[in-house]
Design a protein around this nucleic acid. Sequence first.
DNA 1: GTCAGAGATCGACAGACGTCGAAACACAGG
DNA 2: CCTGTGTTTCGACGTCTGTCGATCTCTGAC
Lengths: 121, 121
Amino acid sequence: MSNVKALPLLEPAAAEPCCPPLNERPLTADEAERTAVMFKALGDPVRLRLFSAVVSHEGGEACVCDISDVGVSQPTVSHHLKKLKEAGLLSSERRGTWVYYRVEPAVLAAMGQLLTKAAMA
Amino acid sequence: MSNVKALPLLEPAAAEPCCPPLNERPLTADEAERTAVMFKALGDPVRLRLFSAVVSHEGGEACVCDISDVGVSQPTVSHHLKKLKEAGLLSSERRGTWVYYRVEPAVLAAMGQLLTKAAMA
DNA sequence: GTCAGAGATCGACAGACGTCGAAACACAGG
DNA sequence: CCTGTGTTTCGACGTCTGTCGATCTCTGAC
């Protein structure tokens, strides 16, 4: 019945803009710590390819089986997807046999504006 | 001049179009390799603070002496600034005794649009 | 129940990374 | 010249990270 564990993996409010634009003021240590996690998640070529594969896929979501052709082993793919999920960039959902990963547009937009606004200095 | 945008500064994006928006298609291994370098540069809290300090500083540039209060030793600051420079995010110039680091707005804008456009999927 | 396939987790390993102190380098001033 | 200050480079150290094969869990089909 209640086989659902209350795992605090992803807060729905995690989509909030973590930090002010980079040009507004120097980030505090705490802000930098949080923001760096997201950038670091995209700072690996394999993760970037996986992320791009999900984002560019139909409907902004993709089955693992559709995107695991990035030149590394299956456990490594799973490991990287987990990292992207922990960074709040992706969410996952099991539908039958397959697991689908979906992009979090709000987080993506927040990261983008962090940079875009700073470029308008 | 019937341009609706008041800031045509960022429009010539031909500066460093490393890669297509993340949602256009899955990145190739080579594209991902290049792009990951930039994201990885921002994937460290200390570098993020240094970068934010430069970007938010007067005129988008700052002397090392103005931004080296981030809780690590001075050689470490220099090391991180070098990394940001190698990633193409900052450029440096020596003026007399001091060395000034300046942001590269085009690269910053390119990274931002990489994410922002992908968020509009 | 049994089986097969899709993913996740585990354990281990090499290489990359952040950090520091010491030393070298560059420049201004005396 | 020499001295002091700002910045970079060097060497070394411990930690983090990406990678793999083996194994485990979950689901659907028989």
